[in-house]
């Protein structure tokens, strides 16, 4: 009796085998395609990594110049870029980490180095000035406030991430 139940016709057998092999081949082609298509989603966002910069307990009310390195990729060229942050506590106790890149043409500003304008950030190139919290002073060239680093406190250490622009005109 089983003979009849298990009977597979020649046509059916060929259908099954062709479908099997064809399906296998299709899967072989599709899987890398799908993998490539979703790959950008799987990749972590570039530059989103936070870097430990200093101990929170060492942060004062006076901006401190801290250097740290981040890994950068420029086309095919991978390199460590040194970055600077001016870190201090605001009056309300919040930590502020300013990027010293002048919003005018990109020179590096310095804190309190111009005797005629104390307690300001000063750009050596075209005399741009910013207040302690990085707000550009009207009448000087910069069009916008200094950028601010994304900050995070973990285990008593301050981590800095990417620079967030504070826009401007």
């Amino acid at each position: 009796m089983s003979k009849k139940e298990h009977d597979v016709s020649r046509r059916q057998f060929l259908n099954y085998t062709l479908m099997g092999v064809g399906g296998f081949m299709a899967a072989g082609i599709m899987s890398p395609l799908v993998r490539f298509a979703v790959d950008p989603l799987l990749k972590g966002k570039e530059g989103a990594k936070m870097v430990p910069v200093m101990d929170v307990k060492d942060i004062t009310n006076e901006p401190q110049n801290k250097k740290f390195t981040v890994k950068k990729v420029d086309g095919w060229h991978k390199f460590d870029e040194q970055q600077i942050a001016y870190i201090f506590k605001k009056k309300n106790g919040d930590i502020l980490a300013l990027s010293p890149i002048c919003t005018h043409l990109g020179c590096t500003v310095a804190w309190n180095d111009d005797p005629s304008h104390p307690n300001q950030f000063h750009c050596p190139c075209h005399g741009g000035r910013y207040t302690k919290t990085g707000i550009n002073i009207p009448g000087t060239p910069p069009p916008a406030p200094l950028g601010v680093y994304k900050t995070q406190v973990k285990d008593g250490k301050l981590y800095l991430g990417e620079v967030i622009s504070r826009g401007g005109s």
């Binding site: 002048c102 590096t108 050596p124 075209h126």
Partner: peptide, 8 residues
């Protein structure tokens, strides 16, 4: 150059 990029 990096530090004075806006004028140099």
């Amino acid at each position: 150059e990096r530090q004075l990029t806006g004028r140099v």
